[in-house]
Each structure stands twice: as structure tokens, then as C-alpha cells.
Design a protein around this nucleic acid. Structure first.
Length: 202
DNA sequence: AAGAGGATGAACT
DNA sequence: GTTCATCCTCTTG
């Protein structure tokens, strides 16, 4: 299990990072519990030419300032007043780009995830979807700006040797970004073809 | 100070 | 297929 280091996240091509994150392991160590899941769905949000990005055109606010930090930082924000959405900031400090993690396949600690989600079975609705995934992993906005590259961080990304062939990656338009006009059509959603742990969103 | 809207999910018909 | 819970952030006045 190799912890992904800062250089992986500081690259300029956010779409490339989003694609490569599919198949990686997302691990959290929160409240003494360690759980992990394999990333099966991501979305890329770019600093330029992407109206769907919260910080497009350099829009700097209290919320978006996290995206201007170093690559490898957690960007977690509340959506619809209910859901905690987990993103990974990419590119160099000052360039606000991020990858939204939308779904994982449970690997370890599924019992803890079920407890957090108040579910009895290890079903697809345990972690398939950005809001429910965060809940299962114990991620909430108080972990915003967490450095993901430290060995002791409560949230980390690992490469466990699992390899995904290019032909196993499915692309499509991002979810819930209709307000972004033509940028909503960009095929910047990446998922693992055939995985049953993808989010149900069309 | 107030209002609108949002990178969703669950529970309906 | 539709509705709506729920609240933070941003915009406007």
C-alpha cells in the first residue's frame, strides 16, 4: 500500500488525476475506526474553462479558498444543507482545481460504515453517491483542508497495486451541474466500467 | 438583513 | 417519474 504523495496531486491535468484515481484506495481513520474503499467514480473540476467549478474565473470566497491550497488537500463542503461532499484539491497552490469522489466500493470496515449509515446490509446504497459515501467513511466538513498526504492524516489515498485498464474506464458528463451551460456537457466523470458500486445518478 | 440556490438522497406516486 | 428535507454560502440591498 503506497500512500499517494503530493507530486501526484500537484499535476496540472485535473482530468488525468480524476481518471487515475479510479481504482485507488480511499482510507479514513476517524474516531479510532479505520475503514477503506476502492474509488469507482470521480469527477474533475478545472480552474479555467469550467463554469461548473466553484472557483471558476478565480472566484475566491470563504468556501472556495480551500481549492486554492496545495494539491493533496481535502476540500469538503456542505451541499443542499445536508450532504458532506469530499473532494481532493489538485494542481499547484493558487490554481483552484479539484476531483470530487462520488463513490467507492467498500473494502475494509464495512460493519462500521453500516453503523454510520444505519443500514443492516452491505448494499449498494452504503457508499454509492458522494453524500452517502462521506457519511459511511465518517467524513464531514470539520475535516476540510486536511492534508491527505501525511501518513497520520485521518483521510489518505493509497495505491494498493490494483490496476485499471484504460478500456475499463467509462466517461460521461458530470452530475448536477446543469447550471454550467455547455460546460455541463464536458465528459469529466470517470467510473469503473461494470462496477455495481457506482452512484445511481444518470 | 434577507433571500435564493445548490457538485444530493430518500421517500413517495 | 416527482417532491422535499435542510442549512450554509453568496449575493444583493
Amino acid at each position: 500500500m503506497d500512500l499517494l504523495q503530493r507530486p501526484f496531486f500537484e499535476r496540472p491535468a485535473v482530468t488525468e488525476i480524476a481518471r487515475e484515481l479510479v481504482g485507488k484506495v480511499l482510507l479514513t481513520h476517524i474516531d479510532g475506526d479505520t475503514v477503506s474503499g476502492r474509488i469507482v467514480e470521480t469527477e474533475a473540476y478545472a480552474a479555467e474553462g469550467d463554469k461548473a467549478c466553484h472557483a471558476h474565473l478565480g472566484k475566491f470566497t470563504k468556501r472556495t479558498k480551500t481549492m486554492f491550497g496545495d494539491g493533496g488537500t481535502a476540500y469538503i463542503y456542505l451541499c443542499y444543507g445536508i450532504h458532506h461532499l469530499f473532494n481532493i484539491v489538485t494542481n499547484q497552490s493558487g490554481t483552484p482545481e479539484a476531483v470530487l469522489i462520488r463513490a467507492v466500493e467498500p473494502l475494509t470496515g464495512a460493519d462500521i460504515m453500516m453503523e454510520r449509515r444505519n443500514l443492516k446490509k452491505k448494499a449498494r446504497n452504503l457508499t454509492a453517491g458522494p453524500g452517502v459515501m462521506s457519511q459511511a467513511l465518517g467524513i464531514s466538513t470539520n475535516l476540510n483542508e486536511t492534508d491527505l498526504t501525511l501518513p497520520k492524516s485521518p483521510i489518505r489515498i493509497y495505491d494498493d497495486g490494483f490496476r485499471v485498464m484504460a478500456s475499463s474506464i467509462e466517461t460521461g458528463p458530470r452530475v448536477g451541474v446543469d447550471y454550467a451551460g455547455e460546460d455541463a456537457l464536458l465528459p469529466w466523470r470517470y467510473s469503473l466500467k461494470g462496477s455495481k458500486w457506482k452512484s445511481p445518478a444518470k
